[in-house]
Every structure is written in structure tokens, then in C-alpha cells.
Design a protein around this nucleic acid. Sequence first.
DNA 1: GCGTCTTGTCACTTGTCGGTGACTTTAAGC
DNA 2: GCTTAAAGTCACCGACAAGTGACAAGACGC
Lengths: 222, 222
Amino acid sequence: MSASLSGSKKTKEAPRTRDRAATEEKILAAVEQILARDGFSALGINEIARQAGVDKVLIYRYYGGLPELLRAFGERGNFWTSIEELLPDIAALREQPIAELLTAFLSRFIDALRKRPLTIEILAMEIDAPNALSQVLDEVREEWGRQVAKVLGGDTHPDTVELNVSINLIVAGALHLMVRARRTVAWSGIPIQQEQGWDAIKHGIAWLVPRMLSNGGMPHGK
Amino acid sequence: MSASLSGSKKTKEAPRTRDRAATEEKILAAVEQILARDGFSALGINEIARQAGVDKVLIYRYYGGLPELLRAFGERGNFWTSIEELLPDIAALREQPIAELLTAFLSRFIDALRKRPLTIEILAMEIDAPNALSQVLDEVREEWGRQVAKVLGGDTHPDTVELNVSINLIVAGALHLMVRARRTVAWSGIPIQQEQGWDAIKHGIAWLVPRMLSNGGMPHGK
DNA sequence: GCGTCTTGTCACTTGTCGGTGACTTTAAGC
DNA sequence: GCTTAAAGTCACCGACAAGTGACAAGACGC
């Protein structure tokens, strides 16, 4: 079926059989599918070639090897959530107490991440085997963290250092539960694979944040 | 080839002492060494036999396979921290505000876990590949969680549900940072491989806990 | 038409893994 | 002594992994 080109001198149509760009796309798509379906441990050259329906030698030719392929995959990006995506209504929220803003932010952050199983997978892989892909995510997240600090800390809160650590601890905890939820049904009684469990977590955060931001019960001046 | 000649079967000069108990111990020790040195991904039958200086067929004979070996290893126990170990002075602490008790508990919990790299390794392995070993740890931890709730929640706090979720979130966050610290130097600017970073985290917790336990700034009731 | 580079196919080497059959050597019971 | 069963050794298997060399065939410039 060698696509006998009947009068196709200028060949505008996409070449079917021989098309490097399409092959590269198939390879990248295979990476995504394998990661989503079986996780990082299943991500090898052979498996990628198999999934993409492509000879593995092409992976070496086009990318050099797995690390470079992962980097290329990582640069397709969109693995994290932008601040704007999380807080489109930031102007309105600024009218409210800061606790409202932070609560909304954390709650939406959880929802957004949980809709990105691929990101959670990368996060999990980073725990055991940091690689080119997780490094890309790492850089994005660091920059994100800086922006978050700026947006939320804009109104110079008195205890910025401790508050910052506390927020980071909560974020880390949420990420931990998301990562664990891939394989484990519950955490200390919280059903982290079910919507109900995450509602409880978000509810807990909504309870915690205002207390965290208040100076309740503390002697003044720290 | 195949020199079936019985000429000189001398090759091995050391007629290994024959001692099953000692061999089993060597195998279990090898598991521990590999886990501590290279992590779970390096833990295979061949590698264990190599590290133990023992033929792998003995692993199959004595344990049946890797899962059973892991279970046997897990039952050597001591992977978690008892409440008593964390709070030997609980009686004295009970005289203090509850915030003191909880702060001390979390802080010591972090210190205790960080001194158990093997436990952190098991925790990490559980994220990607729950197995017989992580299951043992899981059971211990669930029971531990129940005891903690009893000790800390003994004085019926008004907001037990949300408080419980919040504490769990903090614990999960701390565990996440410990697990990440095996391979990553920092988290959002916190140097989690250095004592200084963990001091900051504990300091943050000491700041957060009293606020969490107060009703600061909140309308009463809800 | 011709040659040439690129895309794609195939077969192969090398290494490691989990797992097993069959052997030899030791120690203990008689 | 002899028998026997356990402890330990050796060699092998099949599966699968990463990586490579050789080659067929489409696409393109001329």
C-alpha cells in the first residue's frame, strides 16, 4: 500500500507513512498514556515503542534516550495550575477577609490537582526517582510557590515566616494524600479515594485557616 | 565445556558452616542493608542473595519468595514510634495547656521518625508499590493513629472532626517532607535535608498549633 | 532517469531478572 | 560404620530490558 502518489507532485497532504512529526507525537502521546495508566515504573523504551506502535530505534534517533524524551515531554507543560486559574476572582476575594482568600485558594488548589492525575503521577515518581521530567515540574512549582507567596502575603502579615511554613505544610500534606490515594484507600480513617474524604479535608482546611490567621488566644506581639 | 569431569571439585575451599538460623539472619540483614542503602527499587531476590553472600535458592527454600520474606522482615518490627516513647512525660504535660502537649507530640514525632530512615524508606515504597512490608507498617500506624486520637482527644475538644483532619494533614505534610528529603534538598525554600529546615518546620508547628486549638476570632458555636 | 538522505523495519547482542532442577556436602540418628 | 534429610552449590531456563548495526523503502533534489 505504498500510497501511489497519483499526480501528487507538490504533495500538500500529510504524508501518511513517513512522517517524523507524527511519529514524535505518537511517542509523546504514548508516554502520557503509560504514565496515566501504569505509572512511572512501567515507563521504558520498549513499552513506549510498543504503546506508540513505533520501532524503538526511532526513539533513540529522535530523542537520544529516555531522559531526553522525558524532558521533551515535560516541556509540553501544563502540569501545574496557574494562580490565575485558581483565583480568577481574586479581585472580589480581596474584598473579603484574607482567610476567605486563602481558604478558597487551598480548596481550589486541591480540586485542580486532583483533576490532573498525570501531575500527581509525576509528583509520585519524583519521590523515588527524580528525573528530567520531575525536574521540569519542580521548576514550575518553585516559581509557582514564589508567586503564591506574593499574592497571599501581599498584605504583610505579621508572622510571615511561620505562616509560610504552615501553609507549605498543609500543601505538602494535601499532596501526600493525593499521591497516596493512587494506591491506598484511606489515611487515618479518611477515605482519600472518595469525594467525601476530600470534602472532609477541604472542610478541615476551611476550619483551620481562619484560626491560623487569627492571633487567637495568644499573647500579643508574639 | 560443562567439564563434568569430577577431577577436582575443589573450587570452593571454604566448606561454609552449616547453620540455617545464621543464614536466615544474613538474609534479613541484607534486606535491611539494601533498603537503607539503595531503596526499595533495588530490593530483588538476586540482590538480596548477593548482599547476603548466600545462594538465592535458600531464600526460596526458607521463605518461599520475596513477599513472605518481606513479611518476616516486617515482623522484626520497631519501625514506628510508640506513644510512650514520644510522650514519656505525658503526666507533666497534661498539667499544661493542651497546645503544649500537641506541640511537643508533633515535634518529637518528627524527630523520632527522622531517626528511622528505614521507616521513611518503607513509607516511600508504600506510595508506589504497597506490599507485604508496607502493609505491616500500615497496620501499626493505624493502631497508632487510634491511640493518638485517644490520648490527645481525651479532653473532648469541641471541634473534634475538623481538628482531627487538621492534625492528620500536618502529619501527612511532615511525612511528605521526610520522604522527599531522601532525594530532594529543598521544598519551597525550606532546606529539608538540613537540621535548620526541620527546626523551621517545628517552629512553624509550634506557632500553628495554639492558633489551631484556640477559637480565635471566630464567632462562637460553629 | 539518478543518487542521497531520511524514515522505518528487523534482527541481534548483552545483561539482568525471577525461578527451578539436580547435584554435592554436611551433620545427626541409628 | 551406614542412612537420611537438610544445608548449600551449580547450572540452567525463559522473559524481558536497553541498546545497536544493517538494511529496505519512501521522499527529495538534481
